[in-house]
Design a binder for these strands. Structure first.
Lengths: 196, 196
DNA sequence: AGTTGTCGAGACTTTCTGTCTCGTCAATAC
DNA sequence: GTATTGACGAGACAGAAAGTCTCGACAACT
């Protein structure tokens, strides 16, 4: 990720402060844009930046939004390793659901997922982002499997998708709450399912 | 649903053939629009209809797409009632995953879900559509609970969301297959979870 | 001092949504 | 049987937003 150009690179250097300001503003707008859409002009204006500066470094709006999201979401989610599947699952899902239940975060997730459906440049970053989140949960399950708490033939990816599936469908459709109580119930279900 | 106006209603009547043509074309375009977006002009042109005819009967593009989707999806999904939770779940999820795994249907579902995130007029129809699908699965679970196959205190809505959550996150993110094998595995997991 | 490439700013093009207008046509009222 | 009413197809129009292009200014390297 750290830029090491092989050529000496003449000319003015990229303004990292502007780059960070763009991402900061994108996260901010994504979180507080329940009503209107997040536009490039709004981002540029709020970041004190020209539009071309954005398009010089990202191929599309969706790419900016995805990088902004990936830089934040998941930052505050611990990776528990207590030695108990049930306890690990509960801690992880409670933290995850609490974060995703926050209206700002939920708004950001909704907007970015919608953007990823229409912007090809956002599809792969979104896949990468979700893959990184899934990987953490899968690692937790693998440790439980190594301890013998999960049958060795169990489909861990299916368990992972059940957990994040509940999260995403509730964020996108908003038909049910997404809080710690739901996380605890889900942890119990999944742990029981894995055991059987 | 059948229109019974109280006033005699003078003037030319609504063209039901045009209405149906619009919905047919919308479904068709939703399924085959992997690349570009589905636009109002395209729908109007393909249906041989003026744009205003669309906006006279639907408040927005999203409303058209949602009504088109709701009219088709779920039409071919049986509601099994074999007396066995495991068998019912497997039959239902296999049919559901097979339908959703079809590229045309998957494309339609992705587009509509994205549209529902940005178009307020599409949010409620989408909620209604998903609620109707969830209701079928929940009914299946309730029958199993009445038979004693599921603990009476179990959170049926959570089980429902685990099933549809897997479906939606895989449709939207495309990181894993969505076929009958996956449906069978999921049915086994959920049935085992409910039993415990 | 000259070259190169970024900077903020903003005009511009393109695409799409949703509105408005027009002349036409069908169903009811008189 | 003619007038009224309102939907019809067609398409011009306005507004929003993405993404491109150009400008003069500025910073880093030769």
């Amino acid at each position: 990720m750290t830029g090491d150009t092989h050529r000496p690179h003449t000319g003015r250097r990229r303004n990292e402060a502007a780059r960070q300001a763009i991402l900061d503003v994108a996260v901010e707008l994504l979180g507080s844009a329940g009503d209107g859409p997040v536009t490039i002009d709004t981002i540029a204006a709020a970041a004190g930046v020209g539009k071309q500066t954005i398009y010089r470094w990202w191929p599309s709006k969706g790419a900016v939004l995805l990088e902004a999201l990936a830089g934040r979401a998941g930052a505050d989610i611990p990776v528990p390793d207590t030695g108990s599947l049930r306890a690990d699952l509960e801690a992880f899902l409670r933290a995850t659901f609490r974060a995703a239940g926050n209206p700002h975060t939920a708004s950001a997730l909704r907007h970015t997922m919608a953007e990823a459906q229409r912007d090809p440049h956002a599809r792969e970053p979104m896949r990468d982002f979700l893959a990184s989140r899934r990987r953490v949960l899968r690692g937790l399950l693998e440790r439980a499997r190594d301890r013998g708490e999960i049958a060795s033939g169990a489909d861990l990816d299916l368990i992972v998708d059940q957990a994040y599936g509940v999260l995403w469908i509730r964020i996108l459709n908003g038909h049910a709450r997404l809080g710690e109580a739901e996380a605890t119930a889900l942890a119990g279900s999944l742990a029981g399912q894995a055991r059987g």
